[in-house]
Each structure stands twice: as structure tokens, then as C-alpha cells.
């Protein structure tokens, strides 16, 4: 199991920063990296990042870390990220990232100024039955705990999320039980009523 982060940062630029194309409003990068910025090249051989068709050379192939593409542009679009592994027996995995240049809500846009918009996603690569080649690297990598105890993606965050999910789970479960009881009640009532109707119909 290899935890990693994929995502993008976007910073607004002024026209003079980018004389080549004045319509471009942001400078952004999209990347794949370790949770704490570790080098993942022990298992990742290449990252193929597919940008919007309008970019020059929309398919970027990065063979060595940092697995990152930096561009300027004006639009948001979905980026395809394909991760190929050192072990050629492993099939590449594909994930999709929505490039985001502007903050989600209006207030944040107002307050943003020159601050970058950072959208990160935590993800884990799971190697089910890896080959001999890969085992050593994975073992060495996981010898050190990679997820920090505190921080954005930490054991603490995980626990909090689990707690939240547990909480929601119990709420939903309670609601479900309530609904089930209600259903039984309604059906019982319906049954009695139907018996009564049959009785009436017979008269």
C-alpha cells in the first residue's frame, strides 16, 4: 500500500506575468506525489497527464519525479492522470482530477487575492499480490510510517473521519430501524383495514 496525493494548485496571474498569451488568467500545476512529498519513483515509472485538447501537446509524459505539469490557462477542465509502474506486469491505474482555478464560493473569490487555490486528494495505491521486484521496494517504503500523526492527511484525520462516518452510520441505522418499525405498523394497519373492507364488500 502506497499512500499518495494528487491534485492541483492554481495561482492567478496578471497579464504582464504572461506576455505570450494575455487571455491566460492562471498559472497552475497538477501533480502526483507522496503524502509528505516523498519520491515515489521506486514504484512509479511514469505519469501520463492528459490535458484539455486545446493545449499544445495535450498528453504529457513525465518519466521522473517530480511528476508534475505546470501550465498557464484560463479554463477549468478534467485532467486524466495515468500512473504506470516500475513493474511492467502491473497494469497502469487511471484517475481523474478536476482542475480548479477559482474558489468554490463567492466570498472566497473576493478574499482570494493572489493566494493559490489548492485542491488535493488523498489516495492509496494498493498492490495486490505484487511481484518479487516490487516487494522489496514496498517493504522498504512502508518500513517508515508514511502517514503523519497530525496534519491534513494524518492518522488523526483518518480517525476523525471514521468517527464522523460511525456517527452518520448510527444515525442512519436508527432512522432505518424507525422506518422499518413504521413500515411494519403501516402494513399491519393496512392488513386490518383490508380485512374490514372485505367484510364490508361481502355485505
Amino acid at each position: 500500500m502506497v499512500p499518495f496525493i494528487y491534485g492541483s494548485t492554481a495561482t492567478p496571474i496578471s497579464k504582464k506575468d504572461n506576455p505570450s498569451d494575455p487571455s491566460h488568467t492562471h498559472k497552475w500545476s497538477v501533480y502526483v506525489r507522496g503524502v509528505n512529498g516523498e519520491d515515489l519513483s521506486f514504484c512509479i515509472k511514469r505519469v501520463t497527464i492528459k490535458l484539455h485538447e486545446s493545449f499544445a501537446v495535450p498528453t504529457r509524459v513525465i518519466e521522473s519525479p517530480p511528476f508534475e505539469v505546470t501550465e498557464t490557462g484560463w479554463g477549468e477542465f478534467e485532467i486524466m492522470i495515468k500512473i504506470s509502474f516500475v513493474d511492467s506486469n502491473e497494469r497502469p491505474v487511471t484517475l481523474y482530477h478536476q482542475l480548479q482555478l477559482y474558489p468554490k464560493d463567492e466570498a472566497a473569490i473576493q478574499a482570494q487575492g493572489k493566494k493559490p487555490v489548492i485542491i488535493n486528494h488523498y489516495e492509496e495505491l494498493v498492490f495486490n499480490e505484487p511481484t518479487e521486484d516490487m516487494i522489496e521496494g514496498l517493504r522498504a517504503y512502508n518500513a517508515v510510517p508514511r502517514i503523519a500523526p497530525v496534519g491534513t492527511y494524518s492518522t488523526q484525520a483518518e480517525e476523525e473521519e471514521l468517527l464522523h462516518l460511525d456517527d452518520v452510520h448510527s444515525k442512519l441505522l436508527a432512522e432505518h430501524e424507525r422506518q422499518k418499525r413504521h413500515l411494519v405498523k403501516v402494513e399491519e394497519e393496512l392488513r386490518l383495514l383490508q380485512a374490514e373492507i372485505r367484510e364490508l364488500e361481502r355485505q
Binding site: P3, Y122, A157, E158, L162, L165, H169, H176
Partner: peptide
């Protein structure tokens, strides 16, 4: 999930399927 570790994913899945069951009920 925000942090899709194995445990979180399992719980997440569970919660979602429960939500579906609830809606069906």
C-alpha cells in the same frame, strides 16, 4: 471520502449502502 484509507473506505461503503437500504425502506 476525504482520506480513503482501507478502514475509511470500508466504513464509507457501509454508510452508503445503509443509506441506499434506508431509501429503499
Amino acid at each position: 471520502p476525504n482520506m480513503p484509507t482501507a478502514a475509511v473506505c470500508a466504513k464509507f461503503d457501509e454508510v452508503r449502502q445503509l443509506a441506499v437500504a434506508l431509501l429503499e425502506t
